[in-house]
Amino acid sequence: MTRSPVSPRPLTGGKVLFMLIAFFGVVIGVNVMMMKLAIQTLPGTEVDSAYSASLAYEDEIAAAHRQSERNWKVDAHIQRGADGGATLLVEARDSGGKPVSGLKFQGRFERPTDKRADQEVDLAEVGNGIYRGSAPLIAPGQWDLVLEGDTAGQRMFLSKNRVLLN
């Protein structure tokens, strides 16, 4: 007669229960950790309400047509400082080449991937049609430079351009 080998530790219901709890505990723990990291790094949305943005779309189209009819030439130059800051110089000219003066220009450096890093730049008129402002600490990399020019509460100019800062 041959004897069947006896397992030194038989598989019991308690062991199976422990293995199931451990398995699902690891899976749930990893999911919770990944969810927490995803929520913490969420940069936000482009617009808070898609419905409100869609209602304002017709106004945006009309403003873009008016801006195109004005045919202004607006040039922006960014100069990096050794301290990590950036100076923004904007020169605005009308369709005849004359400087556009008296506008309230506002600049904004927007990170394409993370709205939390956006930086406003207040531009002051330093010459006839020349506006200057600075961003004290701005990281290198890709940014969207948004320029808005207003007069009497009405937007006269808007542009958004991708720039690379070193």
Rank of each mutant, 00 (worst) to 15 (best):
E110P: 00
E110A: 10
R111N: 03
R111D: 02
R111K: 06
P112S: 13
T113D: 12
T113R: 14
T113L: 04
T113H: 05
T113Q: 06
T113C: 02
T113I: 07
D114I: 01
D114P: 06
D114M: 04
K115V: 00
R116I: 00
Q119P: 00
Q119C: 01
Q119D: 00
E120A: 11
V121I: 14
D122I: 10
D122W: 02
D122K: 04
L123H: 05
L123Q: 03
L123M: 09
L123F: 05
A124Q: 15
A124W: 09
A124D: 09
E125K: 14
V126K: 12
V126R: 13
V126D: 01
G127W: 13
G127L: 08
N128F: 07
N128W: 06
N128L: 02
G129Y: 05
G129V: 13
G129C: 08
G129E: 13
I130L: 09
I130F: 07
I130H: 05
I130D: 00
I130A: 08
Y131P: 06
Y131S: 01
Y131W: 10
R132K: 15
R132D: 01
G133S: 07
G133Q: 14
G133F: 02
G133E: 07
S134A: 14
S134N: 11
A135E: 09
A135M: 08
A135F: 03
P136S: 13
P136E: 15
P136G: 05
P136N: 12
P136T: 09
L137D: 14
L137R: 15
L137M: 13
I138D: 02
A139D: 13
P140H: 10
G141I: 11
G141T: 11
G141W: 11
Q142K: 15
W143D: 02
W143G: 03
W143V: 01
D144T: 10
D144G: 05
D144H: 10
D144W: 05
L145Y: 10
L145F: 08
V146E: 00
V146S: 06
V146N: 07
L147Y: 04
E148P: 05
G149M: 09
G149K: 14
G149S: 11
G149L: 09
T151W: 15
A152F: 08
G153P: 08
G153K: 14
G153I: 12
G153A: 04
Q154Y: 09
Q154M: 11
R155A: 00
R155T: 12
R155G: 00
R155Y: 01
R155S: 02
M156W: 03
F157D: 04
F157E: 09
L158Y: 06
L158S: 07
S159C: 01
S159H: 06
S159L: 05
S159N: 14
K160N: 12
K160S: 14
K160L: 12
K160H: 10
K160M: 13
K160T: 07
N161L: 08
N161C: 04
N161S: 15
N161R: 15
